[in-house]
């Protein structure tokens, strides 16, 4: 017969005994071991978009959809192009039909709900294109909110999604201030741009970068002081999108306007 006092005694001893090996799990975290061996990543992927060079042809979106097997006609995309038209009376128009996949071949602006707005050329004060993609934030809110840890940041800074572990709650989609995330139409899990991680790890460029005929999109490694893209970011005037969210984006822009959303 076990008494209450004995039960409590055993319970306390048991918990104390378990606490020791449990503490060891903390000490032996793989991240710390890697860091201790000097295996700190010397790669930090960054992206540079020169909006002056973008003509809105949509080749990057097409290439991305094919490379990353995002159903071509589904209205979701890892990367997209936004068109901004600002008129002389200060009005701002913007659209991105099909993410700009088919190129901006019409001068009419899409207003949603099947409506279009025609703007006369003489009324335009400025107009430009802004390609968008995942910012691979240094402080990614999407990773923070994932309840199961299915989305994570690699040592070289790219945020990935584990398709076998994502539960499809959409919390990460809600947390992203850039609208970069969506549900994959086939796999039914969270999906996003990952700088074509499978390509950049083999020394290739992301599909969109390779597809861009005007070098509006470039990828580089900020840890490498000889990297030409890293040099541009360090020496020229660049901006990031929505810095007020404290996400610390790693996609830099040249020629960003105050009207860009």
């Amino acid at each position: 017969m076990i008494t209450r006092r004995d039960l409590l005694k055993y319970a306390i001893t048991g918990i104390a005994g378990l606490a020791v090996p449990t503490a060891a799990i903390q000490v032996l975290s793989s991240k710390k071991i890697f860091a201790g061996k000097g295996n700190v990543s010397n790669v930090r992927w960054i992206f540079l978009v020169n909006t002056y060079k973008c003509v809105g042809c949509g080749l990057c979106v097409k290439a991305c959809k094919k490379e990353n097997e995002i159903p071509y006609d589904a209205n979701v995309t890892r990367t997209w192009i936004e068109r901004y038209v600002i008129t002389k009376d200060g009005k701002v128009f913007a659209d991105s039909p099909h993410g700009g996949r088919d190129g901006f071949i019409m001068s009419k602006i899409y207003l949603g709900k099947g409506r279009y707005q025609d703007i006369k050329e003489e009324d335009i004060s400025k107009a430009f294109f802004v390609p968008k993609l995942c910012n691979q934030c240094d402080n990614p809110p999407c990773v923070q909110v994932c309840p199961v840890g299915a989305t994570y940041q690699t040592a070289d800074g790219v945020v990935l999604v584990d398709r076998t572990w994502c539960i499809g709650c959409a919390y990460c989609i809600m947390a992203c201030p850039y609208g970069a995330r969506f549900f994959h139409p086939v796999y039914k899990v969270a999906e996003k741009c990952n700088f074509c991680y499978h390509r950049i790890n083999k020394g290739l460029k992301p599909a969109c970068v390779s597809a861009c005929p005007f070098s509006a999109r470039e990828i580089g490694n900020i840890q490498n002081s000889n990297d030409p893209i890293a040099k541009i970011i360090k020496t020229e005037r660049v901006r990031v999108l929505k810095p007020e969210f404290g996400t610390n984006p790693m996609v830099y822009y040249i020629g960003l306007d105050k009207e860009v959303r």
């Binding site: 995309t77 997209w80 991105s96 207003l111 949603g112 709900k113 809600m174 609208g179 995330r181 549900f183």
Partner: peptide, 12 residues
């Protein structure tokens, strides 16, 4: 959708 929204935005 109405006016300018990002392409991936829906009522999730």
């Amino acid at each position: 959708k109405e006016l300018f929204t990002y392409p991936n935005e829906y009522i999730y």
